[in-house]
Design a protein around this nucleic acid. Structure first.
Length: 443
DNA sequence: ATAGGGTTAG
């Protein structure tokens, strides 16, 4: 290109051809190969490549970067246990862990719920650094929060430089542990501290405000509009706000938030459809599904189909049910998730087609506890009590223990059959197993 | 290269 330009002859030569650098791509470095493998979802290959490397001719600090790359790759690909095993192979003589190592290790502990290991890493951090940096402190907060340890508050209170991430972590911790007012208090203190809230601040606080003062949800939503004009378009924030209004059964507000969102991805649609189902508005749910279908802009996934099947179950319309079933077969013919098959079984059962429900149940290659409970309840609810009882035996043979849902079906079947022996046995079983913490209701 | 986020069947 440069050679075709009419250059004046007097001017000095100006690199007539581009340097070879821009033509020949540099060979990938060992680190870039590792991180590419991790990005491609093959951290196992990256790990093997690193472990099989003949002799580490690189310096200790370079090694650390390589090890961190694989470690982060394992964590980000949902393999926290492998990450921690890999970490234990890091010999301190040749690889010296750094901030990145520790923060990834803490995330691995958080993801695999390993409090003891997390604590030991915390101790190593304190031995290494007099004061952990902000990211390490936030990683520690997250680890303790994920592992359900109360140390979160103490650690947070002692932090000097708290950024939004730290605040958000504590807000989420309170909200998830059924302390909505503490979550809101920290949200308020976040605003008072002068730290700018982030979209995550709102995502975390929304679930907490639904169960408090009725004025709060609108107040927090107003704050959202005031603080982050940019956040309202965030699909996460939208989903969270829709879910909050749905929880309050304020479907007008939920719909308003949804309608005002420019960027609606599959998850946002799923939340809105799920909100309709939760509030027993199956027609609205189906209508929304139809809109996705016609717009062809966003795609649907198994979560969408599950919600739609629940709506059909509420409507008890076998015609719609069969159509959705056909769509399920078309969209996910092979390995559809168990939850989707379960939802199909529920739908046929609610529409009164127990035989079809059982055929689907019978054809399933994988069944979980919900599958068994669903089919047992399907039998009992449709008057096939003996079949329900027999299926409970089959379920126990497969190693699934009777849980509160199955117990309810059993009691109901016993009562329908007038079988006092099974009724008494189930009652005794419930009493033996019973504890409120396990979801059992003891009477 | 590092921290926090929404929906999911009985």
């Amino acid at each position: 290109m440069a050679s075709t330009l009419p250059l004046p002859l007097t001017s000095p030569p100006q690199n007539p051809t581009p340097p070879p650098k821009t033509i020949i791509t540099k060979p990938p470095t060992f680190r870039s190969r590792l991180s590419q493998l991790c990005k491609d979802g093959r951290p196992d290959l990256a790990r093997r490549l690193l472990l099989d490397r003949p002799i580490p001719s690189t310096s200790t600090s370079t090694s650390t970067v390589l090890w961190n790359t694989v470690l982060i790759g394992l964590v980000c690909n949902g393999l926290p246990e492998d990450a921690l095993r890999f970490l234990s192979l890091m010999s301190p003589a040749s690889v010296r862990p750094d901030h990145y190592t520790f923060s990834s290790a803490l995330k691995a502990c958080a993801d695999s719920n390993q409090l003891l290991l997390g604590r030991s890493i915390h101790a190593r951090i304190l031995r290494r650094y007099s004061r952990p940096n902000r990211i390490l402190s936030n990683s520690l907060l997250n680890m303790y929060s994920s592992c359900g340890c109360r140390q979160v508050q103490l650690l947070f209170d002692r932090m000097r430089a708290r950024n939004a991430v730290a605040w958000n972590t504590v807000i989420a911790w309170h909200a998830r542990n059924a302390r909505p007012s503490d979550a809101v208090v920290h949200f308020r203190r976040l605003l008072e501290s002068g730290t700018a809230p982030t979209p995550v601040s709102f995502v975390n606080v929304f679930p907490a405000v639904a169960c408090l003062d009725r004025a709060l949800p609108d107040a927090v939503h107003a704050l959202l509009l005031k603080f982050g004009g940019g956040f309202v378009g965030d699909p996460f924030v939208t989903s969270s706000a829709v879910a909050m209004y749905s929880e309050l059964s304020d479907m007008d507000s939920a719909r308003k938030v949804f309608d005002r969102t420019a960027l609606r991805n599959t998850e946002v649609w799923n939340t809105m459809i799920g909100a309709c189902v939760q509030n027993e508005l199956p027609r609205e749910a189906l209508d929304l599904y139809l809109q996705i279908f016609e717009s062809e802009i966003v795609s649907t996934d198994s979560v969408t189909l599950i919600a739609v099947l629940m709506a059909v179950s509420q409507l008890q319309s076998i015609d719609y049910g069969r159509q959705i079933h056909a769509l399920v077969m078309k969209s996910a013919p092979m390995d559809s998730p168990v939850a989707l098959s379960n939802a199909l079984v529920v739908m046929y059962s609610r529409c009164g087609e127990v035989e079809t429900a059982f055929r689907l149940f019978d054809e399933m290659s994988e069944r979980d506890i919900v599958t068994w409970n669903t089919m047992v309840s399907a039998f009992v609810q449709n008057g096939f009590d003996s079949e329900g009882l027999m299926l409970v035996r089959a379920m126990q043979k497969k190693g699934f223990a009777v849980d509160p849902v199955a117990a309810m079906a059993l009691l109901s079947a016993a009562s329908n059959l007038g079988d006092s022996r099974i009724g008494r046995e189930t009652h005794a079983y419930v009493f033996r197993r019973g504890s409120v913490s396990k979801g059992w209701i003891v009477t």
